[in-house]
């Protein structure tokens, strides 16, 4: 058993090791690109300078975004979050319905498994065909392709509730809406969060893919535009912004998860 201080120290050491690897990576990248001039690989200092001036140089009231930043980033994030949000509602609600009835689960499971294993990008042409090139298409595309991990994890989570916990609830005549909300939902939440995390990073990928296929704005569009117009630094800075967005989203969902599942970590320890 480690004391909290020892744990914190170990954690601090891990962080330091991780950080030094990142620093080393950027130093190497800078040194190599500075010494060997390659047109397609600008030095990171140039990329970051461009990213800041192009995307993040704005005032605080526009979230530090420049005009371009706001015009390109906000639509992207909007599409992604709306699509993901629809997927969350759809996945959790359907997951509960299917998960609560093993026979329905048995009926749908193979189909869901099939859909999940289909590479989502392959479906984009169909969405383009039916819904055109607008925002609706992108939102629907994101929603219907990231819903699977949420759905599967919710079904799993709902099915894995402890029988004794349900028996206790039954022994005390707890009404089923309360059983659903206060027992089955919390039991399923760790699995549901696993699904949410996977689907959020998937949503980011699909947002970029959809914007590269058919869009007039957004980060994906900017990256592609940079490549097509040989503004290589612009292309790279778009990629940097995208990875920053990915990191930010991951931090956000992990914060939400550790807040909602504090009991779970404790119970597992």
């Amino acid at each position: 058993m480690k004391t909290p201080i020892q744990k914190a120290r170990a954690h601090g050491l891990e962080l330091a090791i991780g950080a030094s690897a990142v620093v080393l990576f950027f130093v190497l990248w800078e040194v190599i690109t500075q010494s060997v001039r390659m047109p397609y690989f600008p030095p990171p200092s140039v990329i970051f300078e461009n990213a800041v001036s192009k995307w993040f140089g704005g005032p605080w009231y526009s979230l530090f975004l420049t005009e371009t930043g706001a015009q390109q980033l906000l639509p992207s994030v909007g599409r992604m979050l709306v699509g993901w949000g629809i997927a969350v509602v759809l996945g959790v609600v359907l997951g509960f319905v299917v998960g609560l009835y093993p026979r329905i689960a048995a009926f749908f499971y193979p189909a869901i498994e099939f859909m999940r294993n289909l590479p989502p990008a392959a479906l984009l042409p169909i969405f383009l065909l039916i819904l055109g090139v607008g925002d609706g298409m992108k939102v629907a595309f994101i929603a219907l392709t990231v819903v699977w991990p949420i759905l599967l994890n919710t079904i799993d989570g709902v099915g894995s509730v402890e029988q004794t916990q349900l028996d206790s609830a039954r022994a005390y005549n707890i009404r089923w809406t309360r059983v659903l909300r206060s027992i089955i939902l919390p039991s399923a939440l760790p699995k549901i969060f696993a699904g949410l995390r996977v689907s959020l990073s998937l949503a980011l990928i699909l947002m970029v893919v959809s914007e590269m296929m058919a869009a007039t704005n957004g980060i994906g569009f900017e990256i592609l535009l940079g490549q097509r117009t040989f503004r290589i630094v612009d292309m790279w800075s778009g990629i940097v912004v995208l990875s920053a967005l990915g990191v930010l989203l991951n931090i956000a969902i992990q914060a939400l998860e550790s807040r909602s599942l504090r009991w779970h970590r404790g119970a597992r320890a």
Binding site: Q163, T164, Q165, I174, S182, P186, W263, G266
Partner: peptide, 28 residues
């Protein structure tokens, strides 16, 4: 009628505090 099960770790709800666990049946 009330039942106390053998497996306390599975009959209590780990996401509720002790108080909430005890109060839970009372909500009905």
């Amino acid at each position: 009628l009330a039942v106390v099960f053998q497996d306390y770790s599975r009959s209590l709800y780990p996401w509720m505090t002790v108080e909430k666990n005890v109060a839970f049946p009372l909500t009905e």
